[in-house]
Amino acid sequence: MIRFAAALKRAAPVIALAFLVAGCATQGPFATAEKLDRRAADLKIVLMPPDITLSELTVGGVQEVNAEWTASAKTYAQQALQSFLQQRNTQLVAYKEPENAGAGHMHEQLIKLHEAVGGSILLHQYFQPLQLPTKKDKFSWTLGDEVQALGRDEGADYALFVHITDSYSSPGRVAAQILGAFIGVGIPGGVQVGYASLVDLRTGEVIWFNRLARASGDLRKPDAARATIDVLMSKFPS
């Protein structure tokens, strides 16, 4: 049992990388529209609490989470998202937890539902062995119209969900990487995995989705964070 667990621990990052590298038929980003619906004069997107973790990969393959990095990454990511959208004439508002317990429970369930939808998109849209034949030809995912409650409570027309997990190689590890590359052994380096999705709060439809998976990029500094967000928000409807 403990052997299995140990093997699993070691295998997990490699498998994750293998998944990312595996022949993915569809790479996204996916968008069901090129433009946002600007019927309402004052278009607002609510940024759902971003799920971002930054850590450092040490030589042994351990990810030691860095709270300081994570805190600043969240700020830089939020700022970068704000300016990205401002340039496209769109207002980003922060998510406010409702005071009413009933509304709070509804929001909670909607966020969990989004997790299930986002996870399903990652699994079935991007991972070829588990593709769903009925979804082969078009990108069609929805949370359903109960999201309207979220729109009303937050005063927003769309909701933007962001998940980013990023890790950086420590110096010792980079040294090992160079050696490894020379003899042809691939040691997974810092890998950046994340996704963002935009949900229409009138219909529940996921109208834009992008998975970010690349081995470079940095959220620790403002400029680099902006570059990361630019990549993440590729093909975002205007």
Binding site: L20, V21, G23, C24, S169, I178, R214
Partner: peptide, 18 residues
């Protein structure tokens, strides 16, 4: 295929940019 090449190039970029 394309994806694998991208990762390879990116790894090299990390090494150089690191």
């Amino acid at each position: 295929m394309k994806f694998a090449r991208t990762i390879g190039a990116a790894l090299a970029a990390v090494v150089l940019a690191a």
